Amino acid sequence: MSTTNTPSITPASTLADLAVRLAGATRVFHAHGLDFCCNGRISIADISAKKGLDPAALIAELEAATADASDFERWDDAPIPALIEHILEDFHAAHRAEVPRLLDMAEKVERVHGDKASCPRGLAAHLTLMLESLDEHMRKEEQVLFPMILAGRGRMASMPISCMEDEHKDHGLNLEKLRALATDYVPPAEACTTWRALYLGLEQLERDVMEHISLENNVLHPRALRD
């Protein structure tokens, strides 16, 4: 991994490239609701036009975020075995631990506050679907794709990689629904401590899943097909 060689930021820079190479970039993208993982191969200029943003202001935010960021680890030039180990330990294992914890909290909130109009009804059911979908997806990576890449057969993995990236789009749609069910992770005034903690955890889950997908779509997969 690397912590140097900060890339320059221009209107032609893509979200995907900046997300994996620029400290603080994903925080800025999250703040503006920009998809840098599944649809990150779009330039600053194009996404600004699409979202009605000022590209110069967005670049200034990114530059400021880079100056303020610390302990940023770049994985775009890390050895592939180290990158896969990072994905397994910091994302696969983390998702398997965190989603059930959030599901328990969501079930409690719906059970206790189900009579309130602001209750996020259906949130627990959606988290159950997400857990099942993520687990099935990660097992495919662990049992098929990652062993192929580690065995030096990445160039022959175009079909499983295409399948995984299609499933990543489904995960992206699941995140959109999650955010809608949780009202952009803004708890109502009457929310209890568990409810507020749930929304904080869901927002972090969204960040983690997006960074997970970004590493695979924008770093691991292109390198596996090329190296």
Rank of each mutant, 00 (worst) to 15 (best):
T4K: 12
A65P: 00
G152L: 08
D104M: 10
H32Y: 13
R27T: 13
W75S: 04
L18V: 09
Y185I: 05
L34Q: 02
N5M: 10
G201A: 05
M210V: 02
L83V: 11
E167S: 10
H95W: 06
M210Y: 07
P188M: 08
P79Y: 02
N39W: 03
V112S: 04
M159A: 10
M105A: 15
A25C: 09
V20D: 06
L175P: 02
R153H: 14
V20Y: 01
L131V: 03
H86F: 11
R41A: 04
L22V: 03
A45N: 14
H171L: 06
D208I: 05
R41K: 11
S70C: 10
N174I: 01
S8C: 08
I44Y: 00
I149H: 11
D35L: 08
S43Y: 00
A67Y: 03
N5E: 13
K177T: 14
T128A: 12
A31F: 05
R155K: 15
N39T: 07
A60V: 08
A60N: 07
A182W: 08
W195D: 09
L123S: 10
D77V: 14
S214G: 02
E98R: 15
R153N: 14
D90P: 12
K51D: 07
I42V: 15
R101D: 14
A12R: 01
A23K: 00
E110R: 10
A67T: 14
A16L: 01
A78D: 13
A93L: 11
I87V: 15
P7V: 02
R101G: 07
H32E: 06
A69E: 05
A197T: 11
A12I: 00
D68Q: 15
N5T: 13
E132F: 05
K50S: 11
E110H: 04
I87N: 08
R74F: 01
M148E: 08
H137M: 01
F36I: 00
N5H: 13
L173R: 15
N217G: 01
L83H: 05
A180W: 04
I59H: 06
T3C: 05
A64I: 01
V99L: 14
R139P: 05
V209M: 13
D170H: 09
I9Q: 00
W195M: 10
